[in-house]
Design a protein around this nucleic acid. Sequence first.
DNA 1: TCTGGGGTCCTAGGACCC
DNA 2: TCTGGGGTCCTAGGACCC
Length: 385
Amino acid sequence: MIALLDANNFFVSCERVFRPDLMNKPVAVLSNNDGCLISRSNEVKALGVPMGAPYFKYKEILKDHNVAIFSSHFTLYGDMSGRMMDLIDSLVPRIEVYSIDEAFIDLSGVRDIEALCNHIRNLIWRSLGIPTSIGIAKTKTLAKVANHYAKRVPAFKSICYLKEDPRVDQALKLLSVGEVWGIGRQITKKLEGQGILTAYDLKRVDPRCMRQNFNVVGERIVRELNGVSCLELEDIEALKKSTQVTRSFSKTITELDELRSTIATYATRLGQKLREQGLVTKNVMVCIRTSKFRASDPQYANSHTMVLPSFVGQEGQLDLFSRHVEEPFQSEKLWEALDLVNKRYGRGTVFSAACGKGLTWKDQKKHLSQPYTTSWHHLPLVFAK
DNA sequence: TCTGGGGTCCTAGGACCC
DNA sequence: TCTGGGGTCCTAGGACCC
């Protein structure tokens, strides 16, 4: 059996840990630059504010309902996520960290599955103050279905175990096909056109037909719905295959020089990310595009990929800027020092000339919470009477 | 005025090689 | 009239996920 553990409204829950006064009150977390809503408490969902909604369009409604707003604070969420994953990992044979707030858990060999899952939930709640839901079934795709019900049906008390077939089928019949993991908007449209409306209908499709009409991904989904595992738990140590830094600029850029220095500034962050994660790369791609929301303006999008000359050995980092690749050791030390300086004295303390003056604007983050778990200066104070 | 950011996998087609 | 077969690698684009 496989379990999928998922934190409820994760970013909102992280903020609430340090603001217990907001428990059971409406809370929302915004995306970068305070652009969209990316996490909503149940109270906000009940107001009908959709996921990904642009903040400025819903500002009034949110204000009218006294919704507490937070700017995104990814160092906090990342840290809380790491703690949560460590807790799970300490209790089970094997996990796959699937996203910042989700993990698949291998339950093979576990005797009392429900007891273990209860224990995991309680431990995370007691240690971190994060509420979670767990779905359990034979395959990843079915565990996702189970999790869907664990979150929505109060009678399950946040744990839904889809053990035997009549129960699985019942769950699938009540689930629309578009809610199946891996079935997105485009495929939903096509399937519905063929009269396949529920997850149960999809389960009954011939997997080979699915492969012909769609692709091997669709075939796997059908098999997984039938209890045949096609998606193994993946090695969480596996190396990342790509990494990126992308931004929507909060200011329109019209001058080439400014675009150059902006891209150089973000390229610098990408370099830091690579070094932090111990990654090396052969290709670097830069993309730019105009704002798709200004439909009346002429649109432009382009990208360029550069193949870098060589690796400098497994231990070292690829030197992005120097042509003297024959001196990897020196540049490695140099970057190490630069990273340290920038870490201690703030991003952009030392930078390459290509960055010019760096960014000529600041990202909007009007509602940022304190770095409670990642800075000694911001440890919450507790007073006892 | 204001609309996120970071990933994965699959497929088709072209270039090139023997 | 008729023009092989089997590979690899790369790119672009599409679809999906959180």
